[in-house]
Amino acid sequence: MSAQTVDEIKEFFTFYPNKKAAERDSTLYKQKFIAAPVFTYSPETNFAFGTGAKYLFKFNGSGEETRVSNMPMTLQYTLNNQFFLYSGFEVFTNQEKWVIEGNLLFQNYPRLYYGLGSNTPKSAEEQYDYYQFLVEPIFLKQMFHKYLFIGAGFRYNHIFKTKIDPDGLIAQNQPNGFDGSTSVGVEVATLYDSRSSLLNAQDGWYFEFTHGKYGKVLGGTNEFNLTRLDLRHYYEVSKKNIDVLAFQFYAQFSRGDLPFSEYSFFGGSEIMRGYQEGRYVDRDLLAIQTEYRKNFNNSRWGVVGFLGTGDVYNNVSEFQFKNLKPNYGVGARFNLDKVENLNLRFDVGFGEGTNGFYFGIAEAF
């Protein structure tokens, strides 16, 4: 497929909400709304079909000093009889004085369960079904430094219409919240983000810290604390080919009367690829991964190699190097939009006695 054909297909699915205004005023960012049929694959969902959309924009009055805001939306149905509506957004106001980020999710998501802990056997596998509605907006103000933002938000996570095997492991163990739960909490957050691009970073640092306190005052069913850390660094290895070495460290810690839905789920399409999401489950999680992204001059194609390790713990103080679980894999990339540097992604990941392949849009991290 020629580059011209790819661009023509992309343009067919692209709308420009402020096209006329941008043509009259060259200082305005030409907003893009890209909507198209999409299909993806991961071990958790099997093949998924639906509609994907990305709204890329800047507020009027924003120049080169303001990065492009990203508001994606995905609506899909999977061959595992799942459906999900999801948006993970990051919006910059003029001159990046504020950042508004967060998640919105509604899904019916059958999940596989193996028990709690880092040594659960594959033979224990069973399926349970539930509906989930999650909303998490966070508002952060630029403070002290160009790329440093501090703020707060709230998180609401409702699990309902659960279905389990009456003779299965969940029915026997009855983990807290197995029959549904509602988590309502206030979060404080710190964000440092010096990436030049949100969709496919080639340089810079990203660090996000959130700490939430959850209770029953606003209708929650459990009282607990939840802390998350996400540290990433991107290093441009070769300016000639725009090769990138990417690194991520992710951690999640929780304490208190924790419902099952708020436990740490090991594996997935973004970190610890090769393990099914939720293959191992416990209160705390530590994971690290690195990825080399090779790009080719005058080509839309690229390849990646990645490796990582991690584990889950009832308490992170149990950490031991010898118990870390490895993962590694390779992938291919195809550049859909050279202006926004948006890639189509295909990865094959391997873990301890397990593997999986992943097909989707945008990088894993």
Results as ranks from 00 to 15, higher is better:
residue 4 Q to N: 09
residue 7 D to R: 10
residue 13 F to K: 02
residue 16 Y to S: 03
residue 20 K to W: 07
residue 34 I to V: 14
residue 34 I to W: 13
residue 35 A to L: 15
residue 37 P to G: 13
residue 38 V to R: 06
residue 41 Y to T: 09
residue 42 S to Y: 08
residue 51 T to M: 02
residue 59 F to P: 02
residue 60 N to A: 14
residue 64 E to S: 13
residue 67 R to D: 03
residue 71 M to R: 02
residue 72 P to M: 11
residue 74 T to Y: 07
residue 77 Y to I: 15
residue 84 F to M: 10
residue 86 Y to G: 12
residue 87 S to Q: 09
residue 87 S to W: 09
residue 88 G to H: 06
residue 89 F to T: 11
residue 90 E to F: 11
residue 91 V to D: 00
residue 91 V to F: 11
residue 91 V to W: 05
residue 92 F to R: 13
residue 105 L to A: 12
residue 106 F to D: 04
residue 106 F to Q: 06
residue 108 N to F: 11
residue 110 P to A: 14
residue 112 L to D: 14
residue 113 Y to Q: 06
residue 114 Y to V: 12
residue 115 G to C: 10
residue 115 G to D: 05
residue 117 G to F: 10
residue 119 N to I: 12
residue 119 N to Q: 14
residue 121 P to I: 14
residue 125 E to R: 15
residue 127 Q to L: 15
residue 129 D to G: 04
residue 132 Q to L: 12
residue 134 L to R: 14
residue 134 L to E: 11
residue 139 F to A: 15
residue 140 L to C: 03
residue 145 H to Q: 12
residue 147 Y to L: 10
residue 148 L to A: 12
residue 148 L to H: 00
residue 149 F to A: 06
residue 150 I to Y: 00
residue 150 I to A: 12
residue 156 Y to E: 04
residue 162 T to V: 13
residue 165 D to M: 14
residue 166 P to E: 14
residue 171 A to I: 15
residue 172 Q to E: 15
residue 173 N to R: 13
residue 174 Q to Y: 05
residue 176 N to R: 04
residue 178 F to G: 01
residue 181 S to W: 03
residue 189 A to F: 08
residue 197 S to H: 05
residue 197 S to T: 05
residue 201 A to W: 03
residue 202 Q to P: 00
residue 211 H to T: 01
residue 214 Y to K: 03
residue 216 K to A: 07
residue 217 V to E: 08
residue 219 G to P: 06
residue 223 E to N: 15
residue 224 F to T: 07
residue 229 L to A: 06
residue 234 Y to H: 09
residue 235 Y to C: 05
residue 235 Y to G: 00
residue 242 I to N: 13
residue 243 D to T: 03
residue 244 V to C: 01
residue 248 Q to A: 11
residue 250 Y to Q: 01
residue 261 S to P: 02
residue 264 S to M: 05
residue 270 E to T: 15
residue 270 E to S: 14
residue 271 I to T: 03
residue 272 M to L: 06
residue 274 G to A: 06
residue 279 R to G: 02
residue 279 R to K: 07
residue 282 D to W: 03
residue 287 A to E: 02
residue 288 I to W: 08
residue 290 T to Y: 08
residue 302 G to C: 08
residue 303 V to R: 02
residue 304 V to T: 14
residue 308 G to D: 02
residue 312 V to E: 00
residue 312 V to G: 07
residue 313 Y to A: 15
residue 317 S to E: 15
residue 325 K to H: 00
residue 333 R to P: 07
residue 333 R to C: 03
residue 334 F to P: 01
residue 334 F to Y: 15
residue 335 N to Y: 03
residue 350 F to W: 12
residue 350 F to N: 10
residue 351 G to F: 06
residue 351 G to Y: 08
residue 351 G to E: 04
residue 353 G to S: 09
residue 354 T to V: 11
residue 354 T to K: 14
residue 355 N to M: 10
residue 360 G to L: 04
residue 361 I to D: 06
residue 363 E to Y: 09
residue 365 F to S: 01
